[in-house]
Design a protein around this nucleic acid. Structure first.
Length: 288
DNA sequence: CTATGGCCCTGGTTGC
DNA sequence: TGCAACCAGGGCCATA
């Protein structure tokens, strides 16, 4: 499912085709994708605007818009479960199988931007100000403000299990189910360990492994499971072959050989090694 | 503050 | 073989 590495890959690959383009119009075939704005208002806001910049923040792909060189708002795309962003052109038409799932399409002065989303959870929203969307987000795990020092204090200030805390975008922005499980395994920390009960060495490992996991996944253009997630060029990512725990229930831990276990934590499938990530005292494990 | 559970969606998988 | 039930999952919301 698209998390930081997949979203970053998407932003990087669409950027050259989008920066500098003028939006000629918009078609919306699933209204809820706009997050509450009517298609008419949406179109009025974006038509005629120029895409000045394409960036990523957390799991959002952002586009800064301008009119006559003056800022006039932002587009924010959230892929959620099954969203994809593709730039179509005469040379590279959309694959026919994706056509029924196009929810929003922007006509550009060169090509078209299609937002494809089978499960309709994704969002393609217009925002007046960047903050309207990003204000409540925690720091970027690969950014300068995410220091080991900050992390130690932030973890200590909360009393939550690591798994739901790391999934909380207001705490740290960009991780999802896959990379939390992978980072915890690499840090040898159980998903139910409480954030305020980590020693300095554990915090150091977690900080380091979150960043290493995300970097390595980005180098491989993210992870693809089943038919989910393709790059804008239609290619699957390559990091799924490197998973240590995610989706490996019952298979041997690549570090110690013990079978990977799956539990449910906060409604989320959670994968870990019972030997490498020992159960903390007092933790209750619910059935799979 | 933290935890829990429902909701939104659909294609794929499982069960009978 | 056919079909219904079930499941995954990110973010948001209501409730305890």
């Amino acid at each position: 499912m698209p998390e930081l590495p997949e979203v970053e890959t998407t932003a990087r690959l669409v950027r050259p085709d989008l920066v500098g383009r003028r939006i000629r119009g918009a078609e919306v075939s699933w209204e809820r994708t706009l997050g509450g704005m009517s298609p008419a208002v949406f179109e009025r806001r974006v038509r005629g605007a120029r895409i000045a910049r394409v960036f990523r923040r957390a799991k959002y792909i952002g586009m800064a818009l301008e009119r006559s060189r003056k800022p006039c708002g932002f587009l924010f795309v959230h892929l959620r479960m099954s969203g994809r962003l593709v730039v179509e052109s005469k040379r590279r038409p959309l694959e026919p199988g994706a056509v029924p799932y196009v929810r929003v399409r922007l006509d550009l002065d060169r090509g078209r931007l299609a937002f494809i989303d089978v499960r309709k959870f994704g969002r393609f929203v217009f925002a007046e100000r960047e903050d309207d969307v990003t204000a409540g987000l925690g720091p970027e795990p690969l950014g300068e403000t995410f220091t080991e020092d900050w992390f130690r204090k932030a973890l200590g200030a909360r009393k939550r299990a690591l798994k739901p805390l790391l999934l909380d975008q207001s705490f740290l922005a960009g991780l999802g189910n896959i990379y939390v499980d992978e980072s915890l395994h690499r840090s040898r920390l159980h998903p139910l360990r409480r954030s305020d009960r980590l020693d300095g060495a554990a915090v150091k490992r977690l900080h380091r492994e979150i960043r290493a996991t995300l970097r390595e996944a980005m180098e491989r253009e993210g992870s693809s499971i089943d038919t989910f997630y393709r790059t804008p060029e239609g290619q699957p990512g390559q990091y799924q072959d490197r998973f240590q725990v995610y989706g490996r229930t019952g298979k041997p831990c690549r570090r110690c050989g013990r079978a990977i276990r799956r539990i449910v934590v906060g409604q989320r499938g959670t994968h870990f090694c019972t030997r490498c990530q020992p159960t903390p005292r007092g933790a209750t494990i619910s059935a799979p």
